Structure formats: structure tokens, C-alpha cells
Amino acid sequence: MSATERLVPTLGDIGLGWRREIAGVIDDLTPGFCEVIAESVPIRRRRARPDARLTALAAKVPVIPHGVALSLGGVDPVQPARIARLAACAAALESPLVSEHIAFVRAGGVEAGHLLPVPRTGEALDVLARNIKRTTEQLGVPLAVENIAAFVEWPESDLSDSEFLTELVERTGVLLVLDVANVYANARNRGLDPQRELARLPVERVAYSHVAGGRQGDGFYHDTHTDPTPPDVLELVTALRERVDTPVMLERDGRYPPAAELFDELDSIATAAGAAAITASAREVWA
């Protein structure tokens, strides 16, 4: 399926999550696109007021607002004000799409402060379908939803990840942000083969992909976003790109490495994706 048929404009091959702590480094890169946490963008009088550097970046490359608080998987209807925030960010940055998570973050008015996995059941699909419909009706741009790293397994889950995601996109027409690092984390923690799990997923609906690092601890692999991307995840990037020509984006959320190390990680991702590096001009500046 082409990008036009998916209502997704073309993004560059390699992207990076925009964070204020590394904004200066990103200014000197040549990313194909960037992503910003929507809740980090100030809202005043119902209008988004992005950081000046972020606004300047959005004039050069697509910047995608990435929500973390919509709670699409929650039984309560999504809150219109939170959808409006995503829409305001997309308008201010002239974004081609927005993204959120297949997760819930609140229940009965209680905030979890974390992305919680939904059970892989028909009932959960019904909830997601309703909330996705409400969201897309108000956004004005396409929505892509991300698979998360699940640190708990609901006993009532009766669908596999691939069955669940396939049913979700078929019922809603929603796009996917396929996080290969989360595919790896879930497979490793469940004793499954990450390559086989990736091969079963509906990649024809992927708008772009996330890559991130993690670490093993206490018998559990943690998707930290503060560690380098491991070789096994890079192998998943290669396997994904062999199936579909999808953009790939690095997520870093703390413990930012020196610029040279960040450039090396971005180059490793580009190599795994069979794409051109985005670091050449920045290496000259930061040498």
C-alpha cells in the first residue's frame, strides 16, 4: 500500500525524537523527520506555543506530535480537551499526522502515571475502536497508534499481538507506529522469538517505526530509552525494512550520551535500515 493510499505523506528514512536537552545537536543534523511529546508543548488560549527551535525545525522537516496521555485503551471515553491538545500541536507544527499509544493511563479518574497495556481481547478492541473513532473525528490529520512494551500480561488475553493489531487496523483504519524495540522487549520477556513476532505483524499499515535501547535487570528486559540500541533490535530494523519501506526513528529520553556517541547510534540505525546517514554535517560541527 502506498503512502498516498495510507494518507501519510512521505517522511525521510531516519528520524529522531526531539527533546529540549539535545535540541542543539538536532539543529545540526539532517533528520528526515522528528517527533515531539505533545504534552511537552505549552498550550495557551487553546493554541500550541512550541519552542522556537522546534518551530524552526518544523519549517524544515515534518514534526509529529506524539501523545502519552490520551488513554485510548481506557474504558472511559477519551477527553475532548486532550484530543484538542493534539490537534493544536499538529496545527502549530503543520504536522502530517499525530501518534499515540495502544494503552490506558487512567481509570475511574485515577491517573497511573504510566502507559499500561490493554488485555488482548475483543472487549478491549471495542474500547479502542470507539476511542480511536472519537479521536480521529476531531483531529483533522491521520492518527497512528503505537504498540507498547508490556510489563504485565493480562490473564484474560486470548489474542496474539499480531492478531490484536491486525484486527485493530482492519476495524478502525488507523495507522501504526511499529516500535521494534517494544516487539523485542515483549518477545524476550515472554520467551518468544522477536524475529518471528515481527514477521507476523501487519506492516502494511506502518506509518513509521520506533527504535530504542533497554537493559536487562531482575529477570526482566526493560525498555529504558536511556541505553544504546542493542544489536538484536537493529536486526529487527533490517528485517522490517526488508518487508516495508518505512521510516525509522530513534527515541532517547534521558542519560543523553555525548554527541559523538549519539551520532554513532544514529549511523548504526541508518546502516541497519539501508538508509543514508543523517550525521555528516553535524559531525563537522561537533568535531
Results as ranks from 00 to 15, higher is better:
2 S>R: 13
5 E>K: 07
10 T>V: 11
13 D>A: 12
15 G>K: 06
15 G>V: 13
17 G>W: 03
20 R>G: 02
22 I>F: 01
23 A>P: 03
25 V>N: 07
26 I>P: 04
28 D>K: 15
30 T>V: 12
33 F>H: 07
39 E>W: 07
42 P>I: 02
44 R>W: 10
46 R>V: 01
53 R>G: 11
53 R>C: 06
56 A>G: 10
57 L>N: 00
57 L>P: 01
58 A>L: 15
58 A>Y: 12
59 A>G: 03
59 A>C: 00
60 K>H: 04
61 V>A: 07
63 V>F: 11
64 I>S: 13
65 P>V: 11
72 L>R: 06
72 L>M: 06
75 V>Y: 04
76 D>S: 15
79 Q>N: 06
81 A>I: 09
82 R>E: 12
82 R>V: 14
83 I>K: 00
87 A>K: 07
90 A>H: 01
92 A>L: 00
92 A>F: 04
92 A>P: 01
92 A>S: 04
94 E>M: 14
96 P>N: 10
98 V>Q: 02
102 I>F: 05
105 V>R: 02
107 A>R: 05
109 G>T: 11
110 V>H: 03
113 G>L: 09
117 P>N: 02
119 P>D: 13
121 T>M: 01
134 R>I: 02
136 T>Q: 01
137 E>F: 02
138 Q>T: 08
139 L>V: 12
146 E>H: 10
146 E>G: 12
147 N>T: 08
149 A>C: 05
153 E>R: 10
155 P>H: 10
157 S>G: 05
157 S>I: 14
159 L>S: 05
161 D>G: 03
165 L>I: 13
165 L>R: 08
170 E>S: 09
177 V>D: 08
178 L>P: 06
179 D>N: 14
181 A>N: 14
181 A>M: 07
182 N>K: 08
182 N>G: 10
185 A>W: 00
186 N>D: 10
187 A>Y: 03
187 A>K: 04
189 N>F: 03
192 L>E: 14
196 R>K: 15
199 A>D: 13
203 V>H: 06
208 Y>M: 11
211 V>G: 05
212 A>V: 13
213 G>R: 01
214 G>Q: 11
214 G>F: 03
215 R>W: 07
216 Q>V: 07
219 G>E: 02
220 F>P: 05
222 H>M: 07
222 H>E: 05
227 D>A: 03
232 D>P: 14
234 L>P: 04
236 L>N: 10
237 V>F: 04
239 A>G: 04
240 L>Y: 12
241 R>T: 14
241 R>L: 04
250 L>C: 10
251 E>V: 11
253 D>T: 04
253 D>N: 02
255 R>W: 05
255 R>T: 07
259 A>Y: 01
261 E>Y: 09
261 E>D: 10
263 F>E: 13
264 D>H: 02
269 I>M: 05
270 A>C: 09
270 A>L: 08
270 A>F: 12
271 T>K: 08
273 A>F: 14
275 A>T: 09
276 A>V: 15
276 A>E: 15
278 I>E: 00
279 T>W: 06
280 A>M: 03
284 E>D: 02
284 E>T: 15
286 W>F: 12
287 A>Q: 12
